[in-house]
Design a protein around this nucleic acid. Sequence first.
DNA 1: CCTACCGATCGGTAGG
DNA 2: CCTACCGATCGGTAGG
Lengths: 245, 245
Amino acid sequence: MVAARAPEPDVRAGVLKAATRLFAAHGFDGTTLQDVAAAVGVSKPAVLHHFPSKEHIRAGVLAAILEHWQGTLPRLLLAATASEERFEAVFGELFRFFSADSDRARVVLREALDRPAAARKLLAGPVRPWIESIAAYIRAGQASGRHHADVDPEAYVVHMLQLVLAATASAPVTTALLAASEGESARGRYDRELARVARTSLFITSKDDPRGKTEHRARVSMGAELGAAPSSAPKPPHQRHKGTR
Amino acid sequence: MVAARAPEPDVRAGVLKAATRLFAAHGFDGTTLQDVAAAVGVSKPAVLHHFPSKEHIRAGVLAAILEHWQGTLPRLLLAATASEERFEAVFGELFRFFSADSDRARVVLREALDRPAAARKLLAGPVRPWIESIAAYIRAGQASGRHHADVDPEAYVVHMLQLVLAATASAPVTTALLAASEGESARGRYDRELARVARTSLFITSKDDPRGKTEHRARVSMGAELGAAPSSAPKPPHQRHKGTR
DNA sequence: CCTACCGATCGGTAGG
DNA sequence: CCTACCGATCGGTAGG
Protein backbone atom coordinates (compact mmCIF):
# COMPACT_ATOMS: atom_id res chain seq x y z
CA MET A 1 0.00 0.00 0.00
CA VAL A 2 1.15 3.49 0.69
CA ALA A 3 3.47 4.81 3.40
CA ALA A 4 6.71 3.62 1.94
CA ARG A 5 8.59 5.82 4.42
CA ALA A 6 7.36 6.41 7.91
CA PRO A 7 9.90 8.24 10.05
CA GLU A 8 7.22 8.77 12.67
CA PRO A 9 4.53 6.14 12.98
CA ASP A 10 2.37 8.38 15.12
CA VAL A 11 2.76 12.02 14.23
CA ARG A 12 0.41 13.12 16.96
CA ALA A 13 2.39 11.38 19.67
CA GLY A 14 5.62 12.69 18.17
CA VAL A 15 4.29 16.23 18.22
CA LEU A 16 3.31 15.94 21.87
CA LYS A 17 6.69 14.54 22.80
CA ALA A 18 8.64 17.16 20.87
CA ALA A 19 6.39 19.98 22.05
CA THR A 20 6.81 18.94 25.67
CA ARG A 21 10.58 19.18 25.30
CA LEU A 22 10.53 22.43 23.35
CA PHE A 23 7.92 24.15 25.53
CA ALA A 24 9.90 23.12 28.59
CA ALA A 25 13.13 24.54 27.25
CA HIS A 26 11.96 27.70 25.50
CA GLY A 27 8.42 28.27 26.62
CA PHE A 28 5.28 28.41 24.53
CA ASP A 29 6.02 31.82 23.00
CA GLY A 30 9.64 30.84 22.45
CA THR A 31 8.70 27.78 20.42
CA THR A 32 7.58 28.02 16.81
CA LEU A 33 5.47 25.54 14.95
CA GLN A 34 8.42 25.14 12.61
CA ASP A 35 10.55 24.04 15.56
CA VAL A 36 8.01 21.40 16.45
CA ALA A 37 7.64 20.24 12.87
CA ALA A 38 11.39 19.93 12.40
CA ALA A 39 11.77 17.99 15.62
CA VAL A 40 9.12 15.51 14.51
CA GLY A 41 10.45 15.36 10.98
CA VAL A 42 7.37 16.59 9.20
CA SER A 43 6.21 19.85 7.72
CA LYS A 44 4.50 22.63 9.60
CA PRO A 45 1.14 22.11 7.87
CA ALA A 46 1.43 18.43 8.80
CA VAL A 47 1.55 19.42 12.44
CA LEU A 48 -1.44 21.67 11.97
CA HIS A 49 -3.28 18.76 10.44
CA HIS A 50 -3.20 16.87 13.75
CA PHE A 51 -3.63 19.94 15.93
CA PRO A 52 -5.86 22.76 14.65
CA SER A 53 -3.67 25.39 16.28
CA LYS A 54 -0.58 25.89 18.38
CA GLU A 55 -2.88 26.36 21.34
CA HIS A 56 -4.28 22.87 20.83
CA ILE A 57 -0.76 21.46 21.15
CA ARG A 58 -0.37 23.22 24.47
CA ALA A 59 -3.63 21.72 25.67
CA GLY A 60 -2.56 18.27 24.49
CA VAL A 61 0.75 18.43 26.34
CA LEU A 62 -0.95 19.40 29.58
CA ALA A 63 -3.70 16.83 29.14
CA ALA A 64 -1.13 14.04 28.81
CA ILE A 65 0.42 14.99 32.14
CA LEU A 66 -2.94 15.30 33.84
CA GLU A 67 -4.10 11.96 32.51
CA HIS A 68 -1.14 10.19 34.03
CA TRP A 69 -2.23 11.28 37.48
CA GLN A 70 -5.86 10.57 36.90
CA GLY A 71 -4.86 6.99 36.19
CA THR A 72 -2.18 6.64 38.84
CA LEU A 73 -3.16 8.48 41.99
CA PRO A 74 -6.41 6.69 42.85
CA ARG A 75 -4.59 3.37 42.63
CA LEU A 76 -1.74 4.59 44.83
CA LEU A 77 -4.06 5.91 47.48
CA LEU A 78 -6.03 2.70 47.60
CA ALA A 79 -3.07 0.36 47.52
CA ALA A 80 -1.03 1.77 50.39
CA THR A 81 -2.66 1.43 53.75
CA ALA A 82 -0.11 2.36 56.40
CA SER A 83 0.75 6.00 56.85
CA GLU A 84 4.40 5.65 55.94
CA GLU A 85 3.54 3.51 52.95
CA ARG A 86 1.10 6.08 51.72
CA PHE A 87 3.65 8.84 52.09
CA GLU A 88 6.23 6.83 50.24
CA ALA A 89 3.78 5.81 47.54
CA VAL A 90 2.43 9.24 46.76
CA PHE A 91 5.53 11.32 47.34
CA GLY A 92 7.71 8.73 45.64
CA GLU A 93 5.49 8.51 42.59
CA LEU A 94 5.30 12.30 42.44
CA PHE A 95 9.06 12.55 42.57
CA ARG A 96 9.69 9.70 40.16
CA PHE A 97 7.23 10.96 37.57
CA PHE A 98 8.71 14.42 37.30
CA SER A 99 12.25 13.21 37.83
CA ALA A 100 12.01 10.68 35.01
CA ASP A 101 11.18 13.48 32.60
CA SER A 102 11.90 16.86 34.10
CA ASP A 103 10.42 18.53 31.04
CA ARG A 104 7.04 17.73 32.50
CA ALA A 105 7.85 19.72 35.62
CA ARG A 106 9.05 22.68 33.58
CA VAL A 107 5.95 22.60 31.42
CA VAL A 108 3.66 22.58 34.45
CA LEU A 109 5.62 25.38 36.09
CA ARG A 110 5.55 27.49 32.95
CA GLU A 111 1.83 26.96 32.59
CA ALA A 112 1.27 28.25 36.11
CA LEU A 113 3.34 31.31 35.26
CA ASP A 114 1.96 31.94 31.78
CA ARG A 115 -1.72 31.31 32.42
CA PRO A 116 -2.53 31.63 36.09
CA ALA A 117 -6.26 31.81 35.51
CA ALA A 118 -6.33 28.53 33.60
CA ALA A 119 -4.05 26.90 36.16
CA ARG A 120 -6.35 28.04 38.94
CA LYS A 121 -9.30 26.37 37.30
CA LEU A 122 -7.30 23.19 36.84
CA LEU A 123 -6.43 23.17 40.51
CA ALA A 124 -9.91 24.03 41.64
CA GLY A 125 -11.29 21.30 39.36
CA PRO A 126 -9.65 17.93 38.78
CA VAL A 127 -6.65 18.43 41.08
CA ARG A 128 -8.60 19.43 44.17
CA PRO A 129 -9.98 15.98 45.05
CA TRP A 130 -6.45 14.56 45.03
CA ILE A 131 -5.22 17.19 47.43
CA GLU A 132 -8.23 16.69 49.65
CA SER A 133 -7.85 12.93 49.89
CA ILE A 134 -4.17 13.19 50.76
CA ALA A 135 -4.99 15.88 53.30
CA ALA A 136 -7.55 13.54 54.84
CA TYR A 137 -4.84 10.92 55.34
CA ILE A 138 -2.63 13.50 57.01
CA ARG A 139 -5.47 14.37 59.40
CA ALA A 140 -5.77 10.70 60.29
CA GLY A 141 -2.05 10.66 60.97
CA GLN A 142 -2.41 13.69 63.20
CA ALA A 143 -5.22 12.09 65.14
CA SER A 144 -3.09 9.04 65.82
CA GLY A 145 -0.04 11.10 66.73
CA ARG A 146 2.19 10.12 63.83
CA HIS A 147 2.10 13.52 62.18
CA HIS A 148 2.89 16.91 63.67
CA ALA A 149 -0.26 18.45 65.07
CA ASP A 150 0.42 21.88 63.65
CA VAL A 151 0.65 20.72 60.06
CA ASP A 152 -1.90 22.43 57.83
CA PRO A 153 -2.75 19.40 55.67
CA GLU A 154 -3.90 21.10 52.48
CA ALA A 155 -1.18 23.74 52.64
CA TYR A 156 1.44 21.08 53.32
CA VAL A 157 0.42 19.07 50.29
CA VAL A 158 0.42 22.15 48.08
CA HIS A 159 3.87 23.17 49.26
CA MET A 160 5.34 19.72 48.77
CA LEU A 161 3.83 19.52 45.32
CA GLN A 162 5.39 22.87 44.57
CA LEU A 163 8.73 21.91 46.03
CA VAL A 164 9.00 18.73 43.99
CA LEU A 165 7.99 20.61 40.87
CA ALA A 166 10.45 23.44 41.39
CA ALA A 167 13.27 21.18 42.52
CA THR A 168 12.86 18.82 39.59
CA ALA A 169 12.43 21.58 37.04
CA SER A 170 15.46 23.56 38.11
CA ALA A 171 17.74 20.73 39.19
CA PRO A 172 20.13 21.31 36.27
CA VAL A 173 20.59 24.85 37.55
CA THR A 174 20.54 24.47 41.30
CA THR A 175 22.69 21.36 41.64
CA ALA A 176 25.54 23.54 40.37
CA LEU A 177 25.75 24.80 43.95
CA LEU A 178 26.24 21.36 45.44
CA ALA A 179 29.53 19.50 45.40
CA ALA A 180 29.58 15.77 45.06
CA SER A 181 30.72 14.12 48.26
CA GLU A 182 32.24 10.70 48.64
CA GLY A 183 29.89 8.14 47.28
CA GLU A 184 27.10 10.56 46.49
CA SER A 185 26.52 12.79 43.52
CA ALA A 186 25.33 16.37 43.77
CA ARG A 187 21.97 15.24 42.50
CA GLY A 188 21.93 12.51 45.12
CA ARG A 189 22.42 15.06 47.91
CA TYR A 190 19.79 17.27 46.33
CA ASP A 191 17.14 14.56 46.08
CA ARG A 192 17.85 13.09 49.51
CA GLU A 193 17.51 16.46 51.22
CA LEU A 194 14.27 17.07 49.37
CA ALA A 195 12.83 13.83 50.76
CA ARG A 196 14.15 14.63 54.22
CA VAL A 197 12.47 18.03 54.31
CA ALA A 198 9.17 16.53 53.21
CA ARG A 199 9.38 13.72 55.75
CA THR A 200 10.69 15.67 58.74
CA SER A 201 8.11 18.40 58.42
CA LEU A 202 5.32 15.82 58.49
CA PHE A 203 6.31 12.88 60.71
CA ILE A 204 6.94 13.01 64.39
CA THR A 205 10.13 11.07 64.91
CA SER A 206 10.35 9.09 68.10
CA LYS A 207 13.99 9.99 68.48
CA ASP A 208 14.64 13.55 67.52
CA ASP A 209 18.27 13.68 68.44
CA PRO A 210 21.36 14.07 66.31
CA ARG A 211 22.47 10.51 66.87
CA GLY A 212 21.33 9.12 63.60
CA LYS A 213 18.65 7.48 61.64
CA THR A 214 16.03 5.19 62.97
CA GLU A 215 14.66 2.29 61.03
CA HIS A 216 11.60 4.39 60.66
CA ARG A 217 13.64 6.87 58.73
CA ALA A 218 15.02 4.22 56.46
CA ARG A 219 11.57 2.94 55.71
CA VAL A 220 10.26 6.28 54.66
CA SER A 221 12.45 6.68 51.65
CA MET A 222 11.53 7.09 48.08
CA GLY A 223 12.79 3.84 46.79
CA ALA A 224 15.93 2.94 44.91
CA GLU A 225 15.60 5.88 42.56
CA LEU A 226 16.26 8.33 45.34
CA GLY A 227 18.63 6.41 47.49
CA ALA A 228 21.67 5.87 45.39
CA ALA A 229 21.78 5.78 41.66
CA PRO A 230 20.38 8.45 39.38
CA SER A 231 17.01 7.36 38.11
CA SER A 232 17.69 6.37 34.57
CA ALA A 233 14.82 4.06 34.03
CA PRO A 234 11.37 5.56 34.22
CA LYS A 235 9.20 3.03 35.93
CA PRO A 236 6.77 1.48 33.49
CA PRO A 237 3.20 1.78 34.62
CA HIS A 238 3.00 -1.96 34.68
CA GLN A 239 0.60 -3.19 37.27
CA ARG A 240 -2.41 -5.29 37.73
CA HIS A 241 -5.62 -3.92 36.47
CA LYS A 242 -7.24 -1.44 38.77
CA GLY A 243 -9.86 -2.10 41.34
CA THR A 244 -8.05 -3.34 44.41
CA ARG A 245 -10.97 -4.51 46.37
CA MET B 1 13.13 75.54 29.63
CA VAL B 2 12.75 71.92 28.88
CA ALA B 3 10.30 69.19 29.71
CA ALA B 4 6.97 70.93 30.08
CA ARG B 5 5.41 67.64 31.15
CA ALA B 6 7.25 64.96 32.99
CA PRO B 7 5.09 61.86 33.35
CA GLU B 8 8.14 59.87 34.32
CA PRO B 9 11.04 61.67 35.98
CA ASP B 10 13.32 58.73 35.52
CA VAL B 11 12.55 56.79 32.40
CA ARG B 12 15.19 54.18 33.15
CA ALA B 13 13.73 53.35 36.53
CA GLY B 14 10.25 53.30 35.02
CA VAL B 15 11.33 50.84 32.35
CA LEU B 16 12.84 48.51 34.91
CA LYS B 17 9.71 48.63 37.02
CA ALA B 18 7.34 48.03 34.11
CA ALA B 19 9.57 45.36 32.56
CA THR B 20 9.71 43.47 35.84
CA ARG B 21 5.93 43.35 35.97
CA LEU B 22 5.50 42.47 32.30
CA PHE B 23 8.28 39.88 32.17
CA ALA B 24 6.82 38.29 35.29
CA ALA B 25 3.35 38.06 33.80
CA HIS B 26 4.08 37.20 30.17
CA GLY B 27 7.73 36.23 30.03
CA PHE B 28 10.53 37.83 28.06
CA ASP B 29 9.37 36.56 24.68
CA GLY B 30 5.77 37.38 25.51
CA THR B 31 6.56 41.02 26.20
CA THR B 32 7.14 43.50 23.38
CA LEU B 33 9.13 46.69 23.61
CA GLN B 34 5.90 48.44 22.76
CA ASP B 35 4.27 46.93 25.87
CA VAL B 36 7.10 48.25 28.02
CA ALA B 37 7.03 51.66 26.35
CA ALA B 38 3.26 51.96 26.76
CA ALA B 39 3.47 51.00 30.43
CA VAL B 40 6.06 53.71 31.07
CA GLY B 41 4.22 56.27 28.97
CA VAL B 42 6.94 56.95 26.43
CA SER B 43 7.71 55.83 22.92
CA LYS B 44 9.53 52.67 22.00
CA PRO B 45 12.63 54.52 20.73
CA ALA B 46 12.71 56.33 24.04
CA VAL B 47 13.02 52.99 25.80
CA LEU B 48 15.78 51.97 23.41
CA HIS B 49 17.61 55.17 24.19
CA HIS B 50 18.08 54.12 27.80
CA PHE B 51 18.60 50.43 27.03
CA PRO B 52 20.49 49.54 23.84
CA SER B 53 18.36 46.46 23.34
CA LYS B 54 15.60 44.38 24.85
CA GLU B 55 18.26 42.06 26.18
CA HIS B 56 19.77 44.91 28.19
CA ILE B 57 16.42 45.42 29.89
CA ARG B 58 16.39 41.79 30.95
CA ALA B 59 19.87 42.16 32.39
CA GLY B 60 18.84 45.35 34.20
CA VAL B 61 15.82 43.71 35.81
CA LEU B 62 17.90 40.81 37.11
CA ALA B 63 20.70 43.09 38.26
CA ALA B 64 18.27 45.12 40.35
CA ILE B 65 17.15 41.99 42.19
CA LEU B 66 20.68 40.74 42.66
CA GLU B 67 21.85 44.11 43.98
CA HIS B 68 19.22 44.07 46.67
CA TRP B 69 20.70 40.91 48.12
CA GLN B 70 24.26 42.04 47.73
CA GLY B 71 23.38 44.98 49.92
CA THR B 72 21.10 43.19 52.35
CA LEU B 73 22.39 39.71 53.07
CA PRO B 74 25.83 40.52 54.50
CA ARG B 75 24.21 42.91 56.94
CA LEU B 76 21.60 40.34 57.97
CA LEU B 77 24.16 37.65 58.56
CA LEU B 78 26.33 39.94 60.65
CA ALA B 79 23.51 41.47 62.65
CA ALA B 80 21.82 38.34 63.95
CA THR B 81 23.91 36.28 66.29
CA ALA B 82 21.72 33.60 67.78
CA SER B 83 20.70 30.68 65.61
CA GLU B 84 16.99 31.39 65.75
CA GLU B 85 17.57 35.06 65.07
CA ARG B 86 19.65 34.25 62.05
CA PHE B 87 17.03 31.91 60.70
CA GLU B 88 14.33 34.50 61.23
CA ALA B 89 16.45 37.27 59.75
CA VAL B 90 17.47 35.49 56.57
CA PHE B 91 14.36 33.42 55.94
CA GLY B 92 12.14 36.33 56.93
CA GLU B 93 13.92 38.76 54.65
CA LEU B 94 13.85 36.23 51.83
CA PHE B 95 10.15 35.75 52.28
CA ARG B 96 9.37 39.42 52.73
CA PHE B 97 11.38 40.51 49.72
CA PHE B 98 9.67 38.21 47.26
CA SER B 99 6.33 38.47 48.99
CA ALA B 100 6.34 42.26 48.83
CA ASP B 101 6.66 42.06 45.06
CA SER B 102 5.94 38.58 43.80
CA ASP B 103 6.89 39.70 40.30
CA ARG B 104 10.49 39.40 41.39
CA ALA B 105 10.00 35.74 42.23
CA ARG B 106 8.35 35.06 38.90
CA VAL B 107 11.12 36.83 37.02
CA VAL B 108 13.81 34.81 38.79
CA LEU B 109 11.93 31.57 38.19
CA ARG B 110 11.45 32.37 34.53
CA GLU B 111 15.11 33.20 34.14
CA ALA B 112 16.06 29.82 35.56
CA LEU B 113 13.74 28.18 33.05
CA ASP B 114 14.59 30.33 30.04
CA ARG B 115 18.34 30.52 30.41
CA PRO B 116 19.61 27.69 32.62
CA ALA B 117 23.24 28.20 31.57
CA ALA B 118 23.22 31.86 32.58
CA ALA B 119 21.41 31.03 35.80
CA ARG B 120 24.00 28.38 36.60
CA LYS B 121 26.79 30.90 36.28
CA LEU B 122 24.94 33.33 38.48
CA LEU B 123 24.57 30.68 41.16
CA ALA B 124 28.12 29.47 40.83
CA GLY B 125 29.31 33.06 41.03
CA PRO B 126 27.81 35.76 43.25
CA VAL B 127 25.13 33.61 44.88
CA ARG B 128 27.40 30.80 46.01
CA PRO B 129 29.10 32.67 48.91
CA TRP B 130 25.69 33.47 50.38
CA ILE B 131 24.64 29.85 50.34
CA GLU B 132 27.96 28.79 51.81
CA SER B 133 27.82 31.24 54.68
CA ILE B 134 24.28 30.25 55.61
CA ALA B 135 25.28 26.59 55.34
CA ALA B 136 28.17 27.27 57.72
CA TYR B 137 25.72 28.62 60.28
CA ILE B 138 23.60 25.52 59.93
CA ARG B 139 26.66 23.37 60.55
CA ALA B 140 27.32 25.31 63.72
CA GLY B 141 23.73 24.67 64.75
CA GLN B 142 24.20 20.99 64.09
CA ALA B 143 27.35 20.88 66.19
CA SER B 144 25.53 22.42 69.12
CA GLY B 145 22.51 20.16 68.70
CA ARG B 146 19.96 22.78 67.71
CA HIS B 147 19.61 21.57 64.13
CA HIS B 148 18.85 18.09 62.86
CA ALA B 149 22.07 16.17 62.30
CA ASP B 150 20.98 14.73 58.98
CA VAL B 151 20.34 18.09 57.34
CA ASP B 152 22.45 18.61 54.25
CA PRO B 153 23.18 22.31 54.79
CA GLU B 154 23.77 23.46 51.23
CA ALA B 155 20.97 21.33 49.84
CA TYR B 156 18.62 22.58 52.56
CA VAL B 157 19.33 26.20 51.75
CA VAL B 158 18.86 25.60 48.04
CA HIS B 159 15.56 23.84 48.60
CA MET B 160 14.23 26.52 50.92
CA LEU B 161 15.26 29.22 48.46
CA GLN B 162 13.43 27.32 45.80
CA LEU B 163 10.38 26.74 47.94
CA VAL B 164 10.03 30.41 48.84
CA LEU B 165 10.49 31.38 45.21
CA ALA B 166 7.97 28.87 43.90
CA ALA B 167 5.47 29.50 46.68
CA THR B 168 5.61 33.26 46.27
CA ALA B 169 5.54 33.15 42.49
CA SER B 170 2.56 30.86 42.25
CA ALA B 171 0.61 31.93 45.30
CA PRO B 172 -2.19 33.46 43.19
CA VAL B 173 -2.65 30.03 41.64
CA THR B 174 -2.08 27.64 44.49
CA THR B 175 -4.01 29.45 47.22
CA ALA B 176 -7.10 28.66 45.18
CA LEU B 177 -6.92 25.24 46.79
CA LEU B 178 -7.02 26.57 50.33
CA ALA B 179 -10.15 27.72 52.04
CA ALA B 180 -10.06 30.60 54.46
CA SER B 181 -10.78 29.54 58.00
CA GLU B 182 -11.96 31.68 60.87
CA GLY B 183 -9.51 34.48 61.45
CA GLU B 184 -7.07 33.39 58.82
CA SER B 185 -7.04 33.93 55.10
CA ALA B 186 -6.04 31.28 52.59
CA ARG B 187 -2.80 33.17 52.05
CA GLY B 188 -2.25 33.23 55.79
CA ARG B 189 -2.53 29.43 55.99
CA TYR B 190 -0.25 29.14 52.97
CA ASP B 191 2.49 31.36 54.37
CA ARG B 192 2.32 29.91 57.84
CA GLU B 193 2.70 26.37 56.60
CA LEU B 194 5.62 27.45 54.45
CA ALA B 195 7.42 28.83 57.50
CA ARG B 196 6.53 25.74 59.52
CA VAL B 197 8.01 23.37 56.93
CA ALA B 198 11.23 25.41 56.79
CA ARG B 199 11.50 25.54 60.56
CA THR B 200 10.51 21.99 61.43
CA SER B 201 12.88 20.47 58.90
CA LEU B 202 15.79 22.38 60.40
CA PHE B 203 15.29 22.82 64.15
CA ILE B 204 15.16 20.08 66.71
CA THR B 205 12.20 20.92 68.86
CA SER B 206 12.56 20.09 72.52
CA LYS B 207 9.00 18.87 72.64
CA ASP B 208 7.92 17.06 69.56
CA ASP B 209 4.45 16.22 70.68
CA PRO B 210 1.08 17.37 69.41
CA ARG B 211 0.41 19.43 72.51
CA GLY B 212 1.33 22.78 71.09
CA LYS B 213 3.97 25.37 70.61
CA THR B 214 6.71 26.36 72.92
CA GLU B 215 7.90 29.92 73.26
CA HIS B 216 10.75 28.79 71.10
CA ARG B 217 8.34 28.21 68.29
CA ALA B 218 6.71 31.58 68.70
CA ARG B 219 10.07 33.30 68.47
CA VAL B 220 10.94 31.70 65.21
CA SER B 221 8.33 33.43 63.16
CA MET B 222 8.71 35.64 60.20
CA GLY B 223 7.48 38.88 61.64
CA ALA B 224 4.23 40.72 61.27
CA GLU B 225 3.80 39.87 57.61
CA LEU B 226 3.57 36.20 58.31
CA GLY B 227 2.13 36.07 61.77
CA ALA B 228 -1.03 37.85 60.82
CA ALA B 229 -3.01 35.59 63.04
CA PRO B 230 -1.38 35.14 66.43
CA SER B 231 -0.34 31.54 66.23
CA SER B 232 -0.60 30.87 69.90
CA ALA B 233 -2.94 27.95 69.81
CA PRO B 234 -3.01 25.11 67.36
CA LYS B 235 -5.82 26.15 65.15
CA PRO B 236 -8.23 23.56 63.84
CA PRO B 237 -7.57 23.86 60.16
CA HIS B 238 -10.26 24.05 57.60
CA GLN B 239 -13.54 23.14 59.13
CA ARG B 240 -16.73 23.62 57.30
CA HIS B 241 -19.88 24.51 59.12
CA LYS B 242 -22.04 22.86 56.56
CA GLY B 243 -21.60 20.15 54.04
CA THR B 244 -20.32 16.65 54.16
CA ARG B 245 -19.69 15.23 57.52
C1' DC C 1 0.20 16.04 3.81
C1' DC C 2 3.90 19.80 1.05
C1' DT C 3 4.85 24.39 -1.45
C1' DA C 4 3.59 28.69 -1.45
C1' DC C 5 2.02 32.24 0.55
C1' DC C 6 -1.11 35.90 3.59
C1' DG C 7 -1.85 39.78 7.22
C1' DA C 8 0.44 41.35 11.44
C1' DT C 9 3.82 42.33 14.08
C1' DC C 10 8.42 41.67 15.97
C1' DG C 11 13.09 44.26 17.65
C1' DG C 12 15.70 47.84 16.28
C1' DT C 13 17.01 52.34 13.71
C1' DA C 14 16.68 55.88 10.13
C1' DG C 15 16.14 61.25 9.59
C1' DG C 16 14.23 65.54 11.71
C1' DC D 1 26.94 71.86 20.03
C1' DC D 2 24.66 68.44 23.28
C1' DT D 3 20.78 65.52 25.43
C1' DA D 4 16.52 63.25 25.01
C1' DC D 5 13.16 62.00 22.52
C1' DC D 6 9.33 61.49 18.28
C1' DG D 7 6.94 59.65 13.87
C1' DA D 8 7.84 56.52 10.49
C1' DT D 9 9.62 52.54 8.67
C1' DC D 10 13.51 49.23 8.06
C1' DG D 11 14.58 43.85 7.20
C1' DG D 12 12.89 39.31 8.92
C1' DT D 13 9.77 36.14 10.71
C1' DA D 14 5.75 34.72 13.38
C1' DG D 15 1.20 31.67 13.33
C1' DG D 16 -1.93 29.97 10.32
